[in-house]
């Protein structure tokens, strides 16, 4: 029986994130909710464009309920 394993996929996502300029990655998140949302979405190039903002919103809402 096979078991859940997304390690390769997630490692690939993280490699993709690290291709962004280091000054963008090291920047502290913008406190403005719309700017912050857009800036974060722009980093999620491992996702199709139409999914990026939703991924940020979904993540924020999930982590508030953790």
């Amino acid at each position: 029986m096979a078991f859940f394993d997304m390690k390769e996929q997630v490692d690939g996502y993280i490699r993709e994130i690290k291709t962004h300029p280091s000054d963008e990655l090291d920047k502290v998140i913008d406190t403005d909710p719309q700017k912050g949302l857009q800036q974060m979405a722009d980093l999620l190039t491992f996702l199709p464009e139409e999914q990026r903002k939703g991924a940020v919103v979904g993540f924020v809402m999930s982590m508030l309920c953790d």
């Binding site: 962004h20 502290v28 998140i29 974060m40 980093l43 991924a55 993540f59």
Partner: peptide, 11 residues
């Protein structure tokens, strides 16, 4: 929180 770290957490 830095943008890169949050992006990794989303990944």
């Amino acid at each position: 929180l830095k943008q890169g770290l949050m992006a990794e957490a989303i990944a």
